[in-house]
Simulated assay, not measured.
Amino acid sequence: MASPTPYRDENRRRLRSALVAAARDLTVAHGWPGVTMAAVAKLAGVSRQTVYNEFTDKAGLAEALARHEIEHFVDAVSTRLHEHGGDARAAAHAAVLHTLAEAARNPLIKAVLTSARGGADELLPYLTTRSELVLAAASAAIHDWAAARLTDPDPDRLALAAESVVRLTVSHIVQPSAPAERTATALAEVFTRLLG
């Protein structure tokens, strides 16, 4: 069997992108419980079967939507980290502050948290109990920054610092306990102390 052509791969990527964008728009407008495969299909201008073929079920669509949003966040976090060179405290502060501020502004995050408070929490686990996507992507961004900007960091300390600051940041997205600036300062301190 011949492998798919680059043209076909590009069409599939565009289709997935359009379906995820439609799911995002519907989630923002109606909350995740209001999202159906049929509504996504209608908004994207494709058949419902096309949506099922691409994601299998609503859980598959939820994962694709979560991945898309996480990639967007992590790209911005990576940019903030690198803007501060090897200054770990400043890099962590900028990355955490950006993440908290963006999460507070992001209509999808608001929809996820609002839906969860109403009892429909199918997307919330991607920030909490199924947060491996967030942890892996954000930790990778921190490791990439450290490899490019720090001189011979201890791998175990770096792994601990990265995972800790990511988990704490996610916790503050879900349930903020202080203004974003103060939280970013505290988490930057935690990060630098764990790095040693």
Rank of each mutant, 00 (worst) to 15 (best):
S3E: 09
E10G: 04
R13I: 00
R14H: 15
R16E: 14
A18F: 07
A21T: 15
A21E: 15
A23L: 06
A23M: 04
G31L: 00
W32E: 07
G34H: 12
T36M: 07
T36Y: 02
A38M: 05
V40S: 00
A41V: 03
K42L: 13
S47I: 01
R48F: 02
E54S: 13
A59E: 15
A59K: 10
E63K: 10
A66I: 09
A66Y: 08
R67G: 09
E69C: 06
A76I: 06
V77F: 02
R80D: 01
H84P: 05
G86V: 05
A88V: 14
A88G: 13
A94M: 04
V96R: 02
L97G: 02
L100D: 05
A103E: 03
R105D: 12
R105S: 14
R105A: 14
L108A: 11
K110N: 06
A116L: 08
L124H: 10
P125K: 07
T129Y: 06
R130I: 00
E132L: 04
V134R: 01
S139R: 10
I142M: 07
D144C: 03
W145D: 00
A146Y: 00
L150Q: 03
T151V: 13
D154R: 05
D154W: 09
P155Y: 06
R157Q: 12
L158D: 05
A161T: 06
E163Q: 15
E163L: 14
V165I: 15
T169Y: 01
V170M: 08
H172S: 11
V174L: 08
Q175S: 14
P176C: 04
A178S: 03
A184S: 08
T185N: 07
T185W: 07
A188V: 12
A188R: 10
R193M: 14
L194W: 06
